[in-house]
Design a protein around this nucleic acid. Structure first.
Length: 471
DNA sequence: TCTCCTACCACATTTGAAATGC
DNA sequence: AGCATTTCAAATGTGGTAGGAG
């Protein structure tokens, strides 16, 4: 069990001397992230994890909980999570298994969840596990609450980003380190399709205790009509059969094999192939690739994790990045062995980073007009409010209040909005999906042309870590 | 007819304010 | 008055299900 980590030098210009990242940025090479409850995740993953998405937003279960080590205790870090499409397909649940139902829908507004404790010193992140319990998923593309927007019947996997930065605005110059855990991939659904998943959720989620057979749900059942009871009994039978025969994992797994490649089942190979299979193609090459007709049962679906790219960067920056990292030893290659041994011992999914010298990454986009940038770079620090000002919500209104309406920022959502209602941050209101005018042509093109033809995550990763919205 | 989505339901847990006791 | 503990109602989070849209 391991995660795939990626190092992301952020872009947009050389770090100002005052930036906390400063020299320390080059020392943060041993960050290790482990996933809590890997067994639980794995049990879901083996069946084919499904996450309910609703209009008002639904929490994940299991929720993302990680442990961090290797941080500089006194340095401040920001933790972010976003969701990346696993592939470019839409799925349907057909006869007890997932099948491809066509190309993916256009990518909804990309949002990033900011851990409410951010920014916090490394010691804070390391002293206890970090939970993303409050992260919510929605299918409402007009969502005003900052929840992560996903498409139903599409597959995603969460990415965890850790950035050494004193404040959110420093992120622009900081190094992103991205971790993914293959077993956390899931299918977004509006209603559970796989009864085995339902059963697992009910068994493990305390809020669903009322649905447990041995629980106190008799009262509820007694209120149901005979027809309902019959239906329920049928379902219950199915569940029992599922659990007794232990067949669902197998058939479900096989049904998944075609497109997600059983990431969790072949870690060894992935580790071994880590370097070799990391293909950092140029942006142009990816565009070509995206045009190809790709089968969900493609030859190397697991490459998706290995080829995950530096996300928070503008399209124009991609080629350079690919060049830089494609030729350097894969961070994951050195990690796999070390982390796998220790992680297996600890019973956690983990990944330890070995960070190359990010100082070699030049200021590629410095000359680019700010309004043409995408990703984190556009949200350069125009103003640096006190940390508590953005721990909650970073929004367009901030920029407006500051008299900087043209500054492009991102959706970074934190549940503890403090004084600023989340509803206000939503820069991109209903009229901003599809992306607003101030987006760069590059980004818009990426989103539209590549959002749903991708066969691997490398292409999906073209999406910015942050959304396109303004602060 | 089928698939997918939404609204609503009952139940469990969490949260925070009010009440109580020391 | 100040603090700690307890109580309780409201808020929130669950999956189930009926019904509607396409």
């Amino acid at each position: 069990m391991q995660s795939i980590r990626d190092l992301k030098p952020n872009f947009g210009g050389p770090p100002p001397p005052s930036m906390a990242a400063g020299p320390d940025a080059y020392l943060q090479g041993n960050i290790r992230m482990t996933l809590e409850d890997p067994e639980l995740w794995k049990s879901f993953h083996e069946i084919g994890t499904e996450m309910i998405i609703t209009k008002p937003g639904r929490r994940m279960f299991p929720h993302c909980k990680i442990n961090l080590s290797g941080l500089i205790p006194c340095a401040k870090y920001i933790l972010l999570v976003d969701m990346v499409p696993v592939d470019g397909f839409r799925y349907k649940w057909n006869k007890e298994k997932w099948e491809v139902a066509g190309k993916a829908e256009p990518q909804p507004p990309c949002r990033t969840y900011l851990h409410p404790d951010s920014p916090a010193p490394g010691s804070h992140w390391m002293k206890q596990s970090v939970s993303f319990l409050k992260l919510k998923l929605t299918n409402n593309t007009l969502d005003q609450h900052g929840h992560i927007i996903l498409h139903s019947m599409h597959r995603y996997h969460p990415r965890f980003h850790i950035v050494q930065a004193d404040d959110l605005f420093s992120v622009r110059w900081s190094v992103f380190q991205t971790f993914t855990f293959p077993e956390t991939s899931f299918t977004a659904v509006t209603a559970y399709q796989n009864t085995s998943i339902t059963k697992l959720k009910i068994d493990h989620n305390p809020f669903a205790k009322g649905f447990r057979d041995e629980g106190t749900n008799k009262k509820r059942r007694s209120n149901k009509s005979p027809a309902c009871l019959e239906k329920r009994a049928k379902k219950s039978d199915m569940l029992n059969r599922d659990s007794e025969e232990d067949s669902p994992p197998d058939f479900c797994r096989s049904s998944y094999e075609g497109y997600d490649g059983e990431e969790g089942d072949r870690p060894k190979k992935k580790e071994a192939d880590g370097v070799k299979e990391e293909r950092y193609s140029s942006w142009a090459a990816e565009r070509e690739q995206s045009v190809r007709t790709e089968s969900p049962a493609g030859p190397e679906p697991r490459d998706m994790y290995n080829t995950e790219q530096l996300v928070p960067a503008p399209a124009s920056y991609q080629p350079y990045r690919f060049h830089e990292y494609g030729k350097s030893p894969s961070p994951s290659s050195s990690v796999g062995s070390s982390s796998s041994s220790s992680s297996s011992g600890s019973g956690r999914s983990s990944f330890e980073s070995r960070v190359p010298d990010v100082a070699t990454v030049p200021d590629h986009d410095a000359s680019k007009p700010r309004t043409l940038e995408v990703g984190p770079s556009p949200c350069g620090p125009q103003h640096l409010p006190a940390p508590q000002d953005y721990t909650g919500v970073l929004n367009m209104s901030m920029a407006h209040q500051a008299g900087k309406p043209g500054v492009i920022g991102h959706h970074i959502y934190s549940p503890y909005s403090g004084e600023q209602p989340l509803g206000q941050w939503s820069g991109p209101g209903p009229t901003q999906y599809p992306p607003p005018h101030h987006l760069t042509a590059d980004y818009t093109t990426q989103a539209v042309h590549h959002g749903y033809h991708h066969g691997n995550v490398a292409e999906w990763s073209q999406y910015p870590l942050f959304s396109y919205s303004c602060w």
